[in-house]
Amino acid sequence: MKVKSISLAVTAALALGFSIGAVAGTQNETATINQSGVAQSASIDQNNSANDVATINQSNFRNDASINEKNTGSNTAAVTQQGQKDDASIKTTGGGYNWTSVYQGGNHDDATVKQTNEIADTTKVTQTGDYNSASIQQSGGHNNYATVTQSYGGNTADLAQEEAYSSSTTIGQGGGFANYASTTQSGTNESISVSQNGYFNTAFVSQNGSNDHATVSQQGSGHYASITQH
């Protein structure tokens, strides 16, 4: 019944052109927001829960999506945006085994994922346009996996894993030009892999710990790569 109530509230708010906030808790719950207009805003909060699913789907442009999760386990948080100049933000704190994903299919989009004290999370950001920005920050956890995949040119990927261990980062930027990738890790037993195709791409890698591994692969012309290990 709670999911039905959320759906009714979403329908009414959309009809009036309002922003949407949905809150769910406990276990095995589903919250879904679908928006097809311009300059829409949607948010979902899930706290102290397990096996929940939060989904926001937006088309058109200049939309904003936010998902916040605290003390959750085995939850799924997913944002899909198909327009231009969209913003997506997902925050998870104090949980584990969560799945987080952002897909953006336009240009000039921004995606931000922040995770604190998480264990064994999987985070994926996929952007298929030009001049997009992706940021993933993971701090204080372990065994987390983060990946950014970007197509075409002028994109920026910034990944940071701080005070963590046994975590891994992967960035793939293909088929474009003037892409920028920056990755930072401070912990032990961590790995970084950066792959870039095209022209005039830049990759910076920094690791501060022990038993770390870093690889940068670049195909094309005019690239620059830097790896620093402390």
Rank of each mutant, 00 (worst) to 15 (best):
residue 37 G to W: 08
residue 78 A to V: 12
residue 75 N to L: 04
residue 56 I to R: 01
residue 62 R to M: 02
residue 17 G to N: 14
residue 31 A to T: 04
residue 54 A to L: 04
residue 8 L to C: 09
residue 52 D to F: 02
residue 57 N to G: 05
residue 40 Q to M: 06
residue 75 N to Q: 00
residue 71 N to K: 07
residue 48 N to A: 06
residue 47 N to W: 09
residue 64 D to F: 07
residue 7 S to E: 15
residue 49 S to K: 05
residue 15 A to D: 14
residue 38 V to R: 11
residue 30 T to W: 08
residue 62 R to C: 01
residue 26 T to H: 02
residue 70 K to R: 15
residue 12 A to G: 08
residue 72 T to F: 03
residue 14 L to H: 13
residue 46 Q to S: 15
residue 33 I to W: 01
residue 6 I to P: 03
residue 69 E to T: 06
residue 9 A to R: 08
residue 68 N to K: 10
residue 9 A to V: 08
residue 53 V to F: 07
residue 67 I to H: 05
residue 77 A to Y: 04
residue 60 N to L: 07
residue 10 V to N: 09
residue 17 G to T: 13
residue 13 A to G: 09
residue 41 S to H: 09
residue 24 A to L: 15
residue 39 A to Y: 14
residue 26 T to M: 00
residue 67 I to M: 01
residue 44 I to G: 02
residue 31 A to D: 01
residue 40 Q to K: 12
residue 34 N to H: 10
residue 60 N to R: 14
residue 44 I to M: 08
residue 36 S to D: 07
residue 77 A to E: 07
residue 14 L to E: 15
residue 59 S to I: 01
residue 16 L to C: 09
residue 16 L to D: 11
residue 71 N to F: 02
residue 60 N to G: 03
residue 63 N to Y: 07
residue 38 V to W: 13
residue 55 T to E: 03
residue 55 T to S: 04
residue 33 I to A: 05
residue 38 V to Y: 15
residue 50 A to G: 11
residue 8 L to T: 08
residue 29 E to K: 00
residue 33 I to K: 05
residue 55 T to I: 09
residue 25 G to Y: 13
residue 58 Q to K: 05
residue 49 S to N: 05
residue 54 A to N: 10
residue 12 A to H: 12
residue 30 T to F: 04
residue 43 S to Y: 09
residue 32 T to H: 00
residue 40 Q to N: 10
residue 55 T to M: 02
residue 23 V to R: 11
residue 26 T to P: 00
residue 54 A to P: 04
residue 22 A to P: 05
residue 35 Q to Y: 07
residue 60 N to E: 11
residue 27 Q to I: 07
residue 42 A to L: 06
residue 68 N to M: 06
residue 9 A to M: 03
residue 7 S to H: 12
residue 47 N to P: 00
residue 46 Q to Y: 11
residue 45 D to M: 12
residue 43 S to W: 02
residue 19 S to Y: 02
residue 58 Q to W: 07
residue 32 T to G: 00
residue 51 N to C: 08
residue 70 K to N: 14
residue 69 E to F: 03
residue 45 D to C: 05
residue 74 S to P: 00
residue 44 I to S: 01
residue 13 A to N: 12
residue 15 A to N: 14
residue 24 A to F: 10
residue 54 A to K: 08
residue 52 D to K: 07
residue 7 S to M: 13
residue 26 T to L: 06
residue 31 A to K: 02
residue 46 Q to M: 15
residue 46 Q to G: 13
residue 52 D to V: 00
residue 36 S to L: 01
residue 35 Q to M: 08
residue 27 Q to E: 11
residue 65 A to G: 05
residue 7 S to P: 06
residue 30 T to K: 06
residue 65 A to V: 07
residue 10 V to D: 12
residue 39 A to N: 15
residue 72 T to R: 09
residue 49 S to A: 11
residue 47 N to R: 10
residue 40 Q to H: 03
residue 8 L to S: 13
residue 62 R to W: 10
residue 53 V to M: 04
residue 56 I to W: 01
residue 53 V to Y: 08
residue 37 G to R: 11
residue 50 A to N: 11
residue 37 G to K: 11
residue 74 S to A: 13
residue 58 Q to G: 01
residue 69 E to C: 05
residue 35 Q to C: 03
residue 64 D to T: 14
residue 33 I to V: 10
residue 43 S to H: 05
residue 37 G to D: 11
residue 46 Q to L: 14
residue 70 K to H: 10
residue 39 A to K: 15
residue 30 T to N: 01
residue 72 T to G: 04
residue 64 D to W: 06
residue 6 I to Y: 10
residue 72 T to H: 02
